[in-house]
Write a protein that binds this DNA or RNA. Structure first.
Lengths: 356, 356
DNA sequence: TTGAAAGCGATACCAT
DNA sequence: ATGGTATCGCTTTCAA
């Protein structure tokens, strides 16, 4: 298993100088190198299956065509991996490569992850989080073009551009969906407010009621947690031992796992979904929402799109910057980009039961 | 935002040569550089917050202290992220850094991912898959020390070392757990055999019956799929309209989502878990098994340990190799390492109902 | 004890 | 048209 061929090897085999090899292989052969030399060089390169050493290139050009992705726990989480997939696809199509570093939710590793990436001459940086949240942006991110995905700069003023889902609108459209089905007695189950996702989705729910001119029943908006058992207990509180006429006819959940808990509770109480009660999830979690029984109607987070959008903006900035040498923290493309969630209709929501 | 300080900057500030800076900062100062010069150099380095350029280092040393991780869909999957986390932790503790590239299950991207990583001078490579499976190993992985995690070389002979879970034993211990609870009428629900995980887990189940001297009831081992709905329908087939005395008293599932489906079916049929029937999962899927209602007894896949184990072996090889220049595909540490699964006792399994 | 110089691999400029 | 040379940042050897 021998060393890879270098430009010098190619030059020797073709009987020319390294410079000629470089010129030809970079398409600047014509007008500089004789036709027949070009031919020999190409053949030699092919014969040795030569490809330039990227490390040397990075050192020489002071840029690597690599985008660094820092994530707080994406690699170990079921959720936002698709942000990365979306970002990666765009990067690849522009001839860039991505490398991801996971800090496993340890904020103290943020800076060193960024530092490591910067040391490797990444041309740009994306910070991705599992859930929507304000981020204490690692200061050294300012050294290269950077953007945030699914999080936003917690500093009030000088903010890094961010791409986030439109949670308020998502919450509103979820409520509007069941309203369109005739429901008026609609409960909302969410997790804690540690992530702004919960309050925003709830805000959207309230908006829908506002637009309808109806009061929100405060007993029916419960912040119980984010997991299956939380949904189960929340639903029990809403349904168990409550007179049927006093029960909500629809339960909106702030994620799909809560919805699983709700369905479990319904079955346990002998209630059918969506016959007796409509249940809606949020996130369209992979391999969960679609295969639930019944399959969950849910509000899909536009993960791939967010990643793609973030990478697109970032690369525009990277390429704009790459002429002028040093990055001056240009304010280009600042601000937040909101991307809409997508209603996914499946089987867990249906018309209001007769008599309600 | 100015250029980072280089060794030359430090040298100038300290009034010495670049070589001195290098010597001192690499601990080889004593005996080569005057004490007071050393002091000045250290101060200068600190003042400029100097850290060596990793790209230049890689070029110079022909090694990067980076381990490349190729995964078939880890980043976008809920499952095996922890393999990466485990591997990363070990790498970090040895002063290495990991970069991961996801091929999103597109086998044609394997080679190019490896190539990209190799271009970046990675010192070693790990291939990680989401589920246990035979792998068509990208040929160029042979250029540097490499190891497989959760997959194994499909070529019969010259195989890359692999770290995989002991699925057979996992299946056996799962069966033994419910047997110890008194169950004898035990069904097994698994997915297709596209992954060897299903047949191996089933084989373990059979082993347990063999050790007991009991026949396996073939109607009760069902390969239905891997998702919630598959578990639901499988359980329905086993339970719905079947005389109570003819039903299994325990259902073993080859993953936790199947178990969710089974519990849904039980509730729907008015059966309690584990009162009337015991249900067991497999994987200990994050945020699912533990928060199910009831919390799932399950067989945890030793993901973190597998990652850690793979990285440990790999680094041993990397460091052994780094003296002799070129890697000769040494057969050191070949073969498969099996790591045992871990029984996690929770609330979904219990004693056999009275009268059975 | 110190600094000058070579070399890692590639590119771009400048003589020839 | 061609090849020599400086450069990117660093380490290491060797001569002074």
């Amino acid at each position: 298993m021998n060393r890879k061929a270098t430009a010098l090897d190619v030059a020797k085999l073709a009987g020319v100088s390294r410079s000629a090899v470089s010129l030809v292989l970079n398409g600047r052969g014509d007008g500089n190198v004789a036709r027949e030399s070009q031919q020999r060089i190409r053949e030699a390169a092919a014969a040795l299956s030569y490809s330039p050493n990227k490390i040397a290139l990075s050192l020489r050009n002071q840029q690597s065509r690599v985008i660094g992705i820092v994530s707080d726990q994406v690699v170990t989480s079921p959720f936002d991996g698709n942000i990365i997939a979306g970002a990666d696809a765009v990067a690849r199509s522009h001839g860039f490569v991505t490398v991801v570093m996971d800090t496993e939710l340890d904020a103290s590793r943020d800076e060193s992850a960024v530092e490591t990436l910067l040391d490797r001459q990444v041309d740009g940086l994306i910070y991705v989080t599992v859930g929507l949240r304000p981020l204490h942006v690692p200061p050294n991110m300012a050294r290269v073009p950077s953007i945030l995905a699914n999080c936003f700069d917690e500093r009030p003023d000088w903010r890094l551009p961010a791409v986030i889902p439109d949670e308020v609108r998502g919450g509103r459209e979820a409520a509007e969906h069941v309203m369109a089905l005739g429901h008026r007695d609609i409960a909302f189950l969410a997790g804690d407010s540690l992530t702004p996702a919960a309050p925003r989705r709830i805000a959207g729910y309230r908006e829908a009621f506002g637009a309808m001119g109806t009061e929100v029943k405060e007993d029916w908006v419960l912040q119980v947690g984010w997991d299956i058992e939380d949904g189960f207990h929340g639903a029990m509180k809403l349904l168990d031992g409550v007179h049927p006429a006093m029960r909500p006819t629809a339960i909106l959940c702030a994620n799909d796992r809560l919805a699983i808990g709700v369905v479990l509770a319904c079955y346990r109480l002998g209630l059918d979904v969506p016959q007796d009660i409509s249940v809606m999830g949020y996130d369209d979690e992979f391999r969960v929402a679609k295969t639930m029984v019944p399959a969950l109607t849910t509000m899909a987070l536009p993960l791939r799109e967010m990643g793609a959008s973030a990478m697109t903006s970032l690369l525009a900035e990277v390429e704009a910057t790459s002429n002028g040498k040093n990055y001056d923290g240009g304010l280009v493309a600042s601000g937040e980009t909101m991307v809409p969630c997508r209603l996914v209709l499946r089987d867990s929501t249906g018309p209001v039961p007769a008599g309600r």
